[in-house]
Amino acid sequence: MRHADDPRDDAVRALAHQPSEVAYDHLWAADLRSSIHCSAVLLSLLLVIDWVAGSCTLWRGALWAALAVVFFLVLFPPRVAAGEGWLASRGLLRERRIHTGHLVSVRCLDGVGQRLVLRDTFGGRLEIDPRVLIANPPLWHRLNEDAHVSANRGSLTCGTITLLRLSQRIDRETARTVFKVSGLE
């Protein structure tokens, strides 16, 4: 028989109220460094070319710096995170978040840069690069589990084939990585 002030009850309550684990894009910092480096190289090259040509002035230097800042803003990678029931992508100015347990559609847009477009029942819309999911298995795992919840609820009406293709692609990439690391490739 337990007493009302049993310390085990506190431990159980503490475990029950812990938030689920959040998965992050672990390559985001490297992508951010790359965008900074590319912008710095562009600025350096423009200033060196201008200096060698003998036309470097303060105004032209400011123009090249502004161009490098715009280039950085274009290259700035969104930070993707996922938890139980949600997926978020945070850019420089705002965060977009969808409820992955209430997905309505998942589409893959092909083009120069492939994008995965997710929509939820609350009107939320999120675009992410599928390579982020491929490079981060915990993010894919969270999205895949919640997509199954959506499918079981009947809210996911469009996109099960897209998710299946993405799952197969992730499995291929994972197998290729395992073979490469083990020296079997």
Results as ranks from 00 to 15, higher is better:
Ser34Tyr: 09
Leu27Met: 11
Leu103Phe: 04
Ala30Gly: 08
Arg8Val: 12
Leu92Gly: 01
Lys180Arg: 13
Thr100Tyr: 00
Ala88Val: 09
Ser150Val: 04
Met1Phe: 12
Gly85His: 00
Leu58Pro: 02
Leu92Phe: 07
Ser89Phe: 07
Ser105Cys: 13
Ile161Leu: 10
Leu63Ala: 11
Ser55Asn: 12
Leu109His: 15
Val149Glu: 03
Val106Tyr: 10
Glu145Thr: 05
Val117Pro: 00
Ala53Arg: 13
Asp10Ser: 11
Leu92Thr: 05
Ile134Asp: 07
Arg115Tyr: 01
Phe76Arg: 09
Leu139Lys: 03
Leu67Trp: 10
Gly101Gln: 06
Gln168Phe: 11
Arg8Leu: 08
Leu32Phe: 10
Thr121Asn: 10
Leu118Met: 15
Ala30Gln: 14
Gly85Asn: 01
Leu143Arg: 02
Glu173Ala: 08
Lys180Phe: 13
Val178Met: 07
His37Arg: 13
His102Ser: 15
Asp6Met: 05
Ile134Gly: 04
Glu95Thr: 15
Tyr24Pro: 01
Leu58Ala: 14
Thr162Ile: 09
Leu45Gln: 11
Val181Tyr: 03
Asp50Lys: 03
Arg142Trp: 00
Glu173Thr: 02
Val181Gly: 04
Glu145Lys: 04
Leu103Gly: 08
Asn152Gly: 14
His141Gln: 11
Ala16Thr: 06
Asp120Leu: 06
His3Glu: 09
Val149His: 11
Leu103Ile: 04
Gly113Val: 09
Leu63Tyr: 14
His26Glu: 14
Arg131Pro: 00
Ser55His: 10
Leu116Arg: 10
Asp129Arg: 02
Phe71Met: 10
His99Gln: 08
Leu166Cys: 06
Ile170Cys: 01
Ala30Cys: 04
His99Asp: 02
Ser167Glu: 06
Ile36Phe: 08
Gly124Pro: 04
Arg8His: 05
Ala30Thr: 12
Ala66Cys: 14
Leu67Gly: 12
Pro7Asn: 12
Pro19Val: 02
Thr174Pro: 01
Ala14Ser: 05
Gly159Leu: 01
Ser167Leu: 00
His37Phe: 12
Leu42His: 09
Val52Pro: 00
Ile98Asn: 00
Leu156Arg: 12
Ala4Cys: 10
Glu95Asn: 01
Leu126His: 02
Gly159Glu: 01
Ile36Tyr: 10
Leu58Cys: 06
Leu75Gly: 06
Ser44Tyr: 13
Pro137Ala: 04
Val52Ala: 12
Ala68Glu: 08
Asn136Val: 10
Cys56Trp: 04
His3Tyr: 06
Leu75His: 08
Arg97Phe: 03
Ile36Pro: 00
Leu118Arg: 08
Leu93Ser: 11
Ser150Pro: 03
Asn144Met: 07
Leu156Cys: 07
Ser150Trp: 02
Leu92Trp: 07
Gly111Phe: 11
Val132Pro: 13
Arg94Glu: 11
His141Val: 02
Gly113Asn: 09
Trp51Ile: 12
Ala65Thr: 15
Ile134Met: 14
Val132Asn: 09
Ala135Thr: 08
Arg79Leu: 14
Arg33Asp: 04
Arg96Ala: 11
His102Met: 15
Ala82Lys: 02
Thr157Ala: 15
Ile49Cys: 06
Gly61Thr: 08
Arg165Ala: 01
Asp25Arg: 05
Arg79Cys: 07
Val80Met: 06
Phe122Thr: 05
Cys158Ala: 12
Ile170Asn: 03
Leu126Ile: 08
Leu109Lys: 15
Gln18Thr: 10
Ile98Lys: 03
Ala4His: 15
Val178Gln: 12
